[in-house]
Design a protein around this nucleic acid. Structure first.
Length: 524
RNA sequence: GCUCCGGUAGACGAAUUGGUUAAGUCGUUGCCCUUUCAAGGCAGAGGUUGCGGGUUCGAGCCCCGCCCGGAGUACCA
């Protein structure tokens, strides 16, 4: 899996303005594709860009060839498309700053890596993995403050700082593998400002000589990101908090390349945490705790393992977006339901929180319910139809629409509709035992028959008329409402759920009600 | 270990930037309604704002120390 980057460019770009954004998508996601944390990062970038009137650009960061996952790129595209996050430029669309896939931009990285070498900001290193491992172990046993490749040890290693030029050229031309490392300055304070975190200072003595260019000819994230953001004229970098520790390096790279004035502004957003326990949300948490971590269902092409997605679980994209937006951001008002358009209007980086937020699956359901009850009955009926077809039930859309209108308030998802409404389509096959013992008395059959004969006389089987029939039966028999309504519900629905009993009767019609009552009475 | 970032009820989080009694939502509990369930309405529980000092008339907010959590510390992003 590789992450991708979102950039936004305003039509009239100026570096000192605050009108453009960019972000890095997923975190270390070897284990799977874009998950909700990544979509949320994309969303914030999108909201920021749209609010400022910028353009959204998708860049694919596929510099790690080992981690290529088949289908990942399409998955990203499809996910964001489902969410309603649109791009103006990118791998799939082209644009003035292409190509938008880093594996197609190798020449750029090589060029700037060489520039850094000639300006003395970087150097070639020939150390083998074994030598590197030995170095680390040695420094660890010495309890050195900094156990990585850096100023304190680079003079003892196999690199262009210790070797003479002839030797270096010889090694390179003979095809010996090499990397290019950044020459980290010694004991220098790096100051920078993060939009969300504020001012941060880091001393370079805690940093190391990061590899910028790998022996396979590809850049690392650090180099590729800086070069591309510069070339693509990015003004804002909005990415996950896990990048914050790399920011000093990035700042130093901008300086070393002489791009200090073109350096974008940074915003590092809080991580999304597991609902239980500790740590950031990972792929495994979802199905372990019974909620999706992916926007769309994902099938791992290598293992065939399937992870559930929000779309397949019945979440509406609008609800999903709303949930994500509130994961680390809030408007400061009491409004909780926001359309994408409202989010664009209201969103600001300043109101993004600093603390990591825990994802709450319960509240996610609540959000979906809010959107579901606001949906048009016809739209919901169309979503319900395929489910009915699977059950072998063919009904016209008007019928389904009426059913949906009666039951949608008690469901969070369209998938729950059948459980709430099966009795509208077919008579109950069995009766709930608890309801029988609670509501079915000796005289119940007699009461139901009395009700039946009352309703026989009804010319129009309307709510009001049925109610009148109910009342007169109660009066005649001198009984309470429960003695009639409980059995009626049992007979009609089969259990203790569903809308009001009279509403159900009105919907089913006189004949069907009669059939169900008689069937139940005869079977007693 | 080291570096950085965090810490307000079970969860998300507000607090006009130092100003009464620390919002609201989800969840939870009870009641009303519907003799079902859900929705809705009402009410309640839940907090020493991580801990300890300090500054101040006054601290969730500023300063110092500590504790806890997270991230980073790869030829991964």
């Amino acid at each position: 899996m590789f992450p991708c980057l979102f950039l936004s460019l305003p039509p009239n770009f100026e570096y000192n303005g605050s009108e453009r954004s960019t972000c890095v998508l997923p975190q270390k996601s070897q284990t799977g594709p874009l998950h909700i944390g990544g979509v949320r990062t994309a969303l914030y970038n999108y909201l920021f860009a749209k609010k400022q009137g910028g353009k959204m650009v998708l860049r694919i960061e596929d510099t790690d060839q080992k981690r290529f996952v088949d289908g990942a790129e399409d998955y990203i595209l499809e996910s964001l498309n489902w969410c309603g996050i649109e791009f103006d430029e990118g791998v799939h669309k082209g644009g003035p700053y292409g190509p938008y896939k880093q594996s197609d931009r190798k020449a750029h990285y090589e060029e700037y890596a060489k520039k850094l070498i000639s300006s003395g900001h970087a150097y070639y290193a020939f150390d083998t993995p074994e030598e590197l491992e030995a170095l680390r172990k040695k420094l660890e046993t010495e309890k050195a403050l900094n156990t990585s490749y850096g100023p304190h040890c680079r003079s003892e290693m196999d690199n262009s700082l210790t070797l003479n030029e002839k030797k270096v050229n010889q090694k390179i031309s003979s095809g010996e593998p090499y990397v290019i490392r950044f020459k980290m300055p010694e004991n220098e304070d790096v100051n920078f400002t993060d939009i969300i975190r504020g001012d941060v200072v880091v001393n370079t003595s805690t940093l190391d000589d990061k590899v910028l260019f790998k022996s396979d000819g590809m850049p690392t994230y650090h180099l590729a990101n800086i070069v591309d953001d510069y070339l693509m004229k990015i003004s804002h970098v909005i990415r996950g908090e896990e990048w914050l520790p790399s920011l000093p390096l990035h700042v130093l790279l901008y300086k070393a390349l002489g791009w200090e004035n073109e350096m974008p502004q940074f915003a590092h957003m809080p991580l999304t945490l597991k609902p239980d326990g500790k740590g950031k949300l990972s792929k495994r948490d979802g199905d372990r705790l019974g909620f999706p971590v992916f926007p769309l269902e994902w099938k791992n092409p290598q293992t065939g393992e399937i992870s559930s997605g929000y779309r397949e679980s019945g979440y509406f994209p609008e609800a999903f977006i709303n949930i994500l937006a509130f994961l680390g951001w809030n408007p400061g008002t009491e409004q909780e339901i926001f359309s994408m358009e409202e989010l664009i209007q209201t969103f600001s980086l300043e109101r993004v929180g600093k603390a990591g937020s825990r994802f709450d699956p319960e509240k996610a359901k609540w959000y979906n319910h809010q959107y579901l009850i606001e949906k048009d009955n016809l739209e919901l009926a169309e979503l319900y139809q395929p489910i009915l077809k699977e059950k072998g039930i063919i009904k016209n859309i008007q019928f389904v629409e009426r059913v949906v209108g009666l039951i949608k308030e008690r469901a969070n998802f369209v998938q729950e509709f059948w459980d709430q409404s099966s009795f509208f389509f077919e008579a109950p096959m069995e009766y709930d035992a608890k309801m029988i013992s609670k509501g079915w008395k000796e005289n119940t059959t007699e009461i139901l028959k009395a009700f039946l004969s009352k309703s026989e006389d009804l010319e129009e089987y309307t709510f009001d008329n049925i109610e009148l029939a109910v009342k007169s039966v109660l009066e005649e028999k001198g009984i309470g409402m429960g003695q009639l309504m409980m059995p009626l519900r049992l007979v009609l629905v089969g259990s203790g759920k569903g809308p009001g009993v009279i509403e159900i009767m009105e919907f089913l019609g006189k004949e069907e009600v009669k059939r169900r009552i008689e069937k139940a009475c005869n079977s007693r």
